[in-house]
Simulated scan of single mutants.
Amino acid sequence: MRLEPVGSTAAEVLPRLRAVLAGSGPALGLGMVDAAPGAVPEGTAAVITTSGSTGVPKSVVLSRGALLASTSATAARIGEGAWLLALPAGYVAGLQVMIRSLRAGYDPVVLEGRFSPQAFAAATLAIPTISRYTSLVPVQLARLLDAAETDGGVAAALRAYDAILVGGQALPATTFERARDAGARIVRTYGSTETCGGCVYDGVPLDDVVIDVVDGEVRLSGPTLADGYLGDAELTDRVFVRDATGVRWYRTGDAGLVDDGVLRIHGRIDNVIVSGGVNISLDRVERVVKDVPGLAAAVVVGVPDAQWGEASVIVVAQGDALRRSESVQLQEARAAVGAVLGAPARPARLVLVDELAMLPSGKPDREAIRRAVAALHRP
């Protein structure tokens, strides 16, 4: 079967996607526009290449069956209707928005150009007055909530959706509470490109998705799993494993546990620094920091430290931080982290930047942020 690269806009992806869903046409090569056409396994619908937040590129092979299984499971959980595409079409979350809408019989409404609360509100009005759905990343939801405080149109748009899926990274508890108070129906999703996007909603797996935790690492199984990584059999065998009964599992690399049937993620297993001889999960630090007023959009990265070996640094855009001194916000964050995770986990510094480096997917570009902070404080 042939794989042909395609651009990342909805106008470029949608016509090709229709053909793929109908069982005809070449597979979509997303995120690999400079690559030449090639061959992929029969049944492949898309190969999505993304560098991710760590900068390591991976080309994930997704079958038509896996994508449709994911779409069906989502419809069974939250219903179906018309969808607004507010995410890049070249990433799995955006691709799934289009598939869900097409399978429900509607062309997705596309939010054109740069995301803004006003554009979101205007695009919402273009959706048929039936069941409405959309997917966002946390930073988009936070911007909408900020605007909704003074803009009735944005506030009404937030309330217009039967469900707003929010994924891509952990949603701060304070942002979730604000959304709930604003009348938005939020569904927190967990998953990755390797699982055709979100496959766990509000901690509960979708139909036929199974969760296991092995040695503290979350593993997922079910019909939504990717076939593997294009051209990288070694990585495929390392990430997609079979147990003694032959069941195939995806090793997420996330630390977590299942508590009374609900999955709780603690952070990335490998996003750990050793500070003063103590292992510290940057994801857990960031989760606490995000609940500090003014730091909901902050990112926590690890950098070399002359005294402790490594230390964590809070990075936040000036427009997102409250109008208080950096030292006050840092002390509040250190106190919050110390109370929850202990004194060794307290961040060493807070850095204000004009804007955070972001990936096209809407996630923070953590590697670029880390490099910038490390260079800023290099002796």
Rank of each mutant, 00 (worst) to 15 (best):
V204Q: 13
P205D: 05
P205F: 00
L206A: 06
L206I: 06
L206G: 02
L206E: 07
D207F: 10
D208V: 14
D208A: 14
D208W: 10
V209S: 08
V209C: 05
V209E: 04
V210F: 10
V210M: 12
I211P: 03
I211S: 07
D212V: 03
D212P: 11
D212Q: 12
D212R: 15
V213H: 06
V214D: 10
D215Y: 10
D215N: 15
D215P: 07
G216W: 13
G216I: 13
E217P: 04
V218N: 04
V218K: 03
V218C: 08
R219Q: 14
L220F: 06
S221D: 03
S221R: 05
G222R: 03
T224M: 10
T224I: 07
T224L: 04
L225V: 11
A226T: 00
D227K: 15
D227H: 09
D227I: 11
D227C: 13
D227R: 15
Y229M: 02
L230D: 06
L230S: 06
G231Q: 09
G231D: 08
A233P: 07
E234Q: 15
E234S: 15
T236D: 01
T236M: 02
D237W: 00
D237Q: 10
R238G: 12
V239D: 01
V239F: 01
F240V: 03
V241S: 13
V241W: 15
V241L: 12
R242K: 04
R242M: 08
T245L: 03
V247A: 09
V247T: 15
R248K: 13
R248L: 15
Y250T: 01
Y250S: 08
G253S: 08
G253A: 05
G253L: 05
D254T: 11
A255H: 12
A255K: 02
G256Y: 13
G256R: 10
L257H: 15
V258I: 14
D259M: 12
D259C: 09
D260E: 15
D260S: 11
D260N: 13
V262M: 14
L263H: 08
L263Y: 09
R264D: 11
R264E: 12
I265K: 00
H266G: 13
H266T: 15
H266F: 11
G267Y: 09
G267V: 01
G267L: 09
R268S: 03
I269M: 04
D270W: 01
N271K: 13
V272F: 00
V272E: 03
V272L: 02
I273Q: 04
I273H: 02
V274M: 05
G277C: 11
G277F: 09
G277R: 06
G277D: 09
V278T: 13
V278E: 01
V278Y: 04
N279F: 12
N279Y: 11
N279P: 07
I280A: 04
S281W: 00
L282K: 09
L282W: 04
D283H: 11
D283F: 15
R284H: 03
E286T: 11
E286D: 04
E286L: 05
E286Q: 14
R287Y: 12
R287C: 09
V288K: 01
V288W: 05
V288A: 00
V289A: 08
V289T: 09
K290M: 13
K290H: 11
K290Y: 06
D291R: 08
D291V: 06
D291E: 14
D291C: 07
D291G: 10
V292N: 01
V292R: 00
G294R: 03
